[in-house]
Design a protein around this nucleic acid. Structure first.
Lengths: 114, 114
DNA sequence: CAGCATCCCGTACGATACTG
DNA sequence: CAGTATCGTACGGGATGCTG
């Protein structure tokens, strides 16, 4: 049962793009429509399982569009919906902040705890 | 051992404020310096344990400042550091996006999956 | 190539009780 | 008031193997 209302919009947004991989996937798809294998190569370190799961989840939340081509070598392309693009744009400042403070963040997370 | 480098700044930022409660706590502290009990009341649904853990973690990452007063009724005040404030500011667009799309988000997360 | 199934583990999180 | 200790669970996530 999921009766979770969100404390604020930020909470809701984090729920959508939180987790370990969704932000990376969103980011990757922001620039290009990508196939499964391309995504796998673009997002470093992700497993097939997590890519599949994340993609499915983002499909179901309307962030990602999935286009299947019924060909002999199976081909599936993933792209962002308008909704997805708008989210990425909202995340951009956070991403820039993160990059500006990468050193510091790596220092505190690497030497600290979870 | 923690050799996690981040895929991008966004990844790093999400690592800092991800989780279930940190965003809410940051948000609450953005407006005011708050005591433990006040925070507990401000962040709806959080347990003492999670509040403590989140606070400790954010202390260790330099987002939150903790000020103890050695008085008879113990008193501790939490506030954001400059670092914390800058993070909140970077998160703001995301929060606004979330609020603008609250209905949609609740619909897709409430009826879907995690 | 794209993807699902299964096993397994760590930890994030929750509930409850106790303390200075 | 402001925590800490302990226990238990659920889920996120990794590794591996199989299918159309």
């Amino acid at each position: 049962m999921n009766k979770r209302k969100y404390g604020c919009g930020l909470d809701a947004a984090v729920d959508l793009m939180g987790g370990k991989w969704k932000a990376l996937i969103l980011w990757a798809l922001h620039f290009d429509t990508l196939r499964f294998g391309e995504l796998r190569r673009t997002v470093p370190g992700i497993s097939e399982r997590m890519l599949t799961l994340s993609l499915r989840e983002m499909e179901s939340t309307g962030l990602v569009h999935r286009e299947m081509y019924y060909e002999v070598p199976p081909k599936v392309e993933y792209s962002l919906t308008e909704f997805g693009h708008s989210l990425v744009e909202a995340m951009t400042p956070l991403g820039e902040w993160g990059e500006s403070n990468l050193d510091r963040i790596e220092a505190v997370t690497g030497g600290g705890n979870t």
